[in-house]
């Protein structure tokens, strides 16, 4: 999770105490994903356990400063020079909903898509309005915030495009008579984890390409 590396990258700028790290993270990410102090300390504990930070001085107010280690610094360098790889099979609430809906009898799938598109467009409009209201960035903090908002905007746009695409695909499938709902299967499910195994096989095939 990128919180760990983000905190480490901030600590690479100099020793910080927990609450200070929280403030730094917030102002560098447009306060869009506020962290609670508990998360910060949990993360610091794990970073310390892994030898990436070390407890340093305590000031007169009792703030414990954490300091990055050489291994921690290497971790930051490696984080910045490598891509973020998203898990291809990460669960997507909407994709699951549409996939299930298409197998159910009596569900108007194009209505499901239209309701979703309306919702996604609403999100897109709200994000755009928020961005428009903020005007041109005037500081690095503004810029960070805008990058994050843009990322949300592009994600919402991608969702709308995927819905458009799905709608067209379903229309073709319907014309080809492929839209019969699935019946509950009467065959008893096999024990074990066949689905998982199939995924692993796919991953191996993909990995060997």
């Amino acid at each position: 999770m990128s919180v760990r590396q983000s905190l480490l990258a901030i600590l690479d700028q100099g020793p910080c105490y927990g609450y200070q790290l929280r403030t730094e993270f917030d102002r560098r990410t447009g306060s869009i994903w506020p962290l609670n102090v508990g998360q910060i300390y949990n993360t610091l504990d794990r970073l310390e356990r892994d030898g990436l930070v070390a407890k340093g001085d305590t000031d007169e107010q009792g703030h414990v400063y954490y300091q990055i280690t050489d291994a921690g610094h290497d971790e930051v360098t490696s984080w910045l020079s490598s891509p973020v790889v998203r898990s291809a099979a990460a669960r997507d609430e909407l994709a699951i909903k549409l996939a299930i809906a298409v197998t159910l009898p009596g569900v108007d799938i194009s209505a499901v898509i239209q309701v979703q598109r309306r919702g996604s467009l609403r999100t897109l409009q709200d994000l755009t309005k928020t961005k428009n209201a903020s005007g041109e960035p005037e500081s690095a903090g503004d810029l960070a915030w805008q990058l994050v908002v843009d990322s949300l905007i592009f994600a919402a746009e991608a969702e709308v495009r995927w819905l458009d695409h799905s709608e067209a695909r379903l229309a073709r499938a319907s014309a080809a008579g492929l839209m019969a709902p699935m019946q509950l299967t009467l065959e008893p499910p096999k024990r074990g984890r066949p689905v998982r195994a199939a995924v692993d096989n796919d991953a191996q095939v993909a990995g060997s390409l």
Binding site: S31, I32, P34, R118, D126, T130
Partner: peptide, 13 residues
């Protein structure tokens, strides 16, 4: 789609 009362989607802005 009408944009009537946009909600703030962004916490802590």
């Amino acid at each position: 789609n009408v944009r009537d009362h946009p909600e703030s989607l962004l916490a802590g802005r």
